[in-house]
Design a protein around this nucleic acid. Sequence first.
DNA 1: TCGACTTTGTGCGTTCGTTCACAAGTGCAT
DNA 2: ATGCACTTGTGAACGAACGCACAAAGTCGA
Lengths: 268, 268
Amino acid sequence: MSAPRDDLPAAAEAAGRSTSARLPAGRTSTGRVVPEATVARLPVYLRSLTALVERGVNTVSSEELAIEAGVNSAKLRKDLSHLGSYGTRGVGYDCEYLVYQISRELGLAEDWRVAIVGIGNLGHALANYGGFASRGVSVVALLDTDPEVVGEKVAGLTVVPMSELEHVVADGGVSIGVIATPGPAAQEVCERLVAGGVTSILNFAPTVLQVPEGVVVRRVDLSTELQILAFHEQRRLAERELADLGTGRRSTGDAAGAEGLAGWRMAR
Amino acid sequence: MSAPRDDLPAAAEAAGRSTSARLPAGRTSTGRVVPEATVARLPVYLRSLTALVERGVNTVSSEELAIEAGVNSAKLRKDLSHLGSYGTRGVGYDCEYLVYQISRELGLAEDWRVAIVGIGNLGHALANYGGFASRGVSVVALLDTDPEVVGEKVAGLTVVPMSELEHVVADGGVSIGVIATPGPAAQEVCERLVAGGVTSILNFAPTVLQVPEGVVVRRVDLSTELQILAFHEQRRLAERELADLGTGRRSTGDAAGAEGLAGWRMAR
DNA sequence: TCGACTTTGTGCGTTCGTTCACAAGTGCAT
DNA sequence: ATGCACTTGTGAACGAACGCACAAAGTCGA
């Protein structure tokens, strides 16, 4: 049977806390260094794991979880090894325990408060998105300039006017700001968020924000994503043409066709 | 004058990742190879450049453009050098010409057709997003299951029922699909899109899609992004606590406060 | 207790990406 | 012309990330 590590919510302290004097950027509470690339994948693993738990799965091997998460199994193991040795050789990983450990690593034990600025369609979508409400992150404020929108109830919260921004952010203990405004407004909103004490920003506006040192910004840009896809489309097209020129029909073009379809669901 | 620019910690990796099999790093029409990391930044440069053009700027140096785009100038130059030698030493780059070259490289000369599946709040937001309508990418179909939504006019298009999917995609020459459905529906939608001939997918659902070889998937996941920010918040918190332990209260917290604000706008 | 089998954790070579630093080119003033 | 100020393009060093392959560590059945 799987290793019964029953130190779930309790042993957060026992686990790490080497509390050595120096902790240069990059170290976590456990003193380990978690590479950025790994951090970016942890949420994916977390989601796959919670899905498994809900399906009643107790234990999962790196191979299975890797398929679920769409990564290489060696990479998965290395990623997890950065958090500690939480697997059991010959068995795999205890799903629930791993969920707990990854959550802890990501800082989802605390409850980070989020304010969303700009309650258009996107802002609505974000506010209503139940996905993160569940753990670690809770939306506590919605703001907009439009008098039509202000006062409206969205996802159980009342939209407040932009003039309240600093107030709401500072008093509400908000540390993460989400910008879903049109591009031109983004920089100013950003500055006001930071002034209110926000130190992390998720920016959906098509703008590169200028922020003071110490503030982390992540940008999500729809048209950027589409343009990257366009690039790949074009490249594929060029390759196909080139291939056709040569042997008639070999290589990549087919992969997207019938042949590839046969095996595409092997994972599951 | 310390640089106020904050290097985005994870910019390169960020949200999207290609699920498809190793595409042999893109060759351009000229036979050059453009690294993925560069491709991911080109849209940002493109946006900065078009903004400059609109402001009436003719020429820009790598240093200026780099600030605008939030990257290191050496990186910018190397990125651009992958497209060819389009700059003039001692002068800089001709904005309009560079816009043209980057557009061409990204494949925005062609007009890629996009279908959006799932017209909830997010789907609405995407459909109405004017940003990409302008160049290279045009939304030609909206689909949803909900009879309430089907028939509705959004952004000048009528929402059609999901049963039409393969038909609309195949006949409409759609090569890029955007999935904005709830998680559970995503995999099936994906399969049907591919069956209709889509070879690139932008997935907003919280799911890892299984696709046949040759199909490129980029994933944009809100809660993933927030969890990454939570990680950084936590790390910063830990560091601050540790710093306070040492010298009383000269903490990094101040950096986000008044002190940092002084210089943060120098770029502009 | 033993041996066959499974799966983790990681050392290592490779590839990819970033940054530095500077030679080579360009325009301008003199 | 000549020299100066400026900026590109890139070689080279560095660093991060990937993935293979395997020893170590565990399980399970007899």
